[in-house]
């Protein structure tokens, strides 16, 4: 019974992808520096989001935050990103709304990790495997694989005040129609019962209560 409800929920949700496409690329900026950039493209339906984000209704290009002092063999957080993420994390089933997505994009306390991120000095030769692991978070865990047409997954890593990678807080899933959805992550309850609170403030900002309720509903068996 639980599976059926969840499946129905996800099928409904699949049609609810934002008509916003988010990608993260390494580009050369005007100062000649290689710079990680978040590129947000809005279609007519979501033009407001881009308008609010960068006063352009079509495309916003934002320089991305970077973790400092983080690429080293001793860095446990990045190591986890490319190794045992599928064991330690689960995806929350709650997709964030356009408003929440906007609030997320306006914040500068996170960075985005592609499966082939140049920050991966741990096992860069296993890009295909890492891609599968990232994509697995975009696919639903049970029921029909309505998210099989996901083409890109971006891991959201929160950054501490000192630009250190802190937690894996969410995942950005983009389907083949270039529609991006955003989901918070949680720990595998068998691993840790500690909540990951990054998105709470984003969710609780305005219509937080409503969303929280629906989140609880969706998780009920």
């Amino acid at each position: 019974m639980r599976n059926v409800i969840l499946s129905l929920f996800f099928i409904l949700m699949a049609f609810d992808a934002h008509a916003v496409s988010i990608s993260s690329l390494l580009e050369t900026n005007s100062a000649g520096e290689l710079e990680k950039q978040t590129i947000v493209r809005c279609n007519a339906a979501d033009a407001e989001l881009c308008q609010n984000l960068c006063s352009d209704s079509n495309t916003c290009i934002q320089p991305e935050e970077l973790c400092t002092d983080c690429v080293g063999l001793k860095n446990q957080t990045l190591r986890t990103a490319f190794t045992d993420l599928p064991y330690l994390y689960r995806r929350s089933n709650k997709k964030l709304s356009s408003q929440e997505l906007l609030r997320f994009l306006q914040r500068t306390d996170h960075m985005l990790l592609n499966y082939d991120s140049y920050l991966n000095i741990f096992n860069a030769n296993k890009k295909d495997q890492i891609k599968d692991q990232f994509l697995a978070f975009c696919r639903i865990q049970t029921g029909p694989n309505v998210f099989d047409n996901i083409s890109e997954a971006l891991l959201i890593v929160s950054l501490s005040e000192n630009q250190q990678p802190d937690q894996f807080v969410g995942i950005l899933c983009t389907n083949q129609k270039s529609e991006t959805s955003i989901f918070p992550l949680a720990f595998n309850p068998e691993y840790s019962k500690q909540p990951i609170e990054y998105f709470n403030s984003i969710i609780n900002n305005e219509d937080g209560l409503k969303l929280k309720l629906s989140l609880e509903l969706s998780l009920k068996p």
Partner: peptide
């Protein structure tokens, strides 16, 4: 290493190098 810009720096790597854990290397 973190906060000093040198005229001799290769601009392309200015941001990228900050990712690296200097002390470890």
């Amino acid at each position: 290493w973190r906060y000093t810009a040198l005229p001799s720096d290769d601009a392309a790597f200015r941001q990228i190098f900050l990712n690296l854990s200097l002390e470890e290397n």
